[in-house]
């Protein structure tokens, strides 16, 4: 199982393509690999396929029968398309653009939602431990510890998004996929989440889709630039922002389009 080729990559994409309608590729033969405990930012103008690529990694596209994904995605050396989709999704936690705490569950219940949905029974102490630990890792514990039984939807936008991150972390995933997690938030909430992501890097591998270049520059180790479904450039963030190899990347970073 661990006899993978590239021992220091946690995730490898091989010729990954995604199409919404037959013949039109939204993501075109992307190849990439991701090192553990790094933050990788995927950038690009809207409609370039960055979210589509991200959602291929936890097989989210399979919820919609018209979407076809081809190629290979290796998670710790294992082809995810040969695994059970539910297991893939547990190993690759996802945070969405709009915070989506479950409205019928309390804050406490939301953090444990992954266990509840997977029908895993836990003892009361295990539950308390997971809730506290997950909320602490998103710096939300101090703010909500006295109102754990309130509905998650009562929180502010930024708090809701951190709750959703805690919900994903509670399942102890290998990867954290984030789809423009701060695009709907104010600058202060955004800053808090960015801060937190840098702290989380010690334990998790994070892939974050963002249209905010300065965000990518602030927090990511590596950056990918996508344009019209193609992966144009992939390298360290520092290198990409200082010496982009491709003309299109340079145009994007200097604000020529997007």
């Amino acid at each position: 199982m661990e006899n993978s080729i590239n021992i220091d990559s946690i995730l490898e994409l091989k010729d990954v393509s995604v199409s919404y309608t037959p013949g039109k590729l939204a993501v075109n033969e992307v190849n990439a690999y991701f090192k553990p405990q790094t933050i990788t930012a995927i950038m690009g103008p809207s409609g370039c396929g960055k979210s589509t690529l991200l959602r291929a990694i936890n097989r989210m596209h399979e919820l919609y029968p018209d979407i076809v994904t081809t190629g290979e995605i290796l998670l710790k050396g294992q082809n995810i398309f040969k695994m059970n989709p539910m297991k893939v999704r547990r190993l690759a936690g996802m945070v969405f653009q709009r915070a989506n705490p479950f409205p019928t569950m309390s804050i406490y219940g939301n953090v444990l939602a992954g266990y509840k949905l997977n029908n895993i029974s836990l003892s009361k102490t295990e539950k308390d431990e997971i809730v506290e630990h997950s909320l602490r890792s998103v710096n939300l514990w101090e703010e909500v510890k006295d109102s754990l039984n309130k509905k998650g939807t009562f929180l502010s936008g930024g708090q809701q998004q951190r709750l959703c991150i805690a919900r994903a972390l509670a399942l102890k995933p290998e990867l954290l996929l984030m789809d423009e997690p701060t695009s709907a938030l104010d600058p202060i909430s955004t800053a808090r989440i960015e801060e937190m992501l840098v702290e989380l890097k010690d334990q998790y591998t994070i892939i974050i889709v963002t249209h905010n270049m300065s965000q990518a520059a602030r927090i990511s180790d590596n950056s990918m630039f996508m344009y019209l479904g193609e992966l144009v450039e992939f390298g360290t963030t520092k290198q990409m922002f200082t010496k982009p190899k491709d003309k299109r990347t340079e145009d994007y970073l200097t604000g020529a389009f997007g």
Binding site: M60, R89, L117
Partner: peptide, 29 residues
Amino acid sequence: VPNDLKEGAYSLGATRLEVIQRVSLPAAG
């Protein structure tokens, strides 16, 4: 029932039935 909610549940590894039981039915309850 908003799609984000259901996707949120799927992303945590739920099956379709579990999404219906734990998310869709309670939300539309």
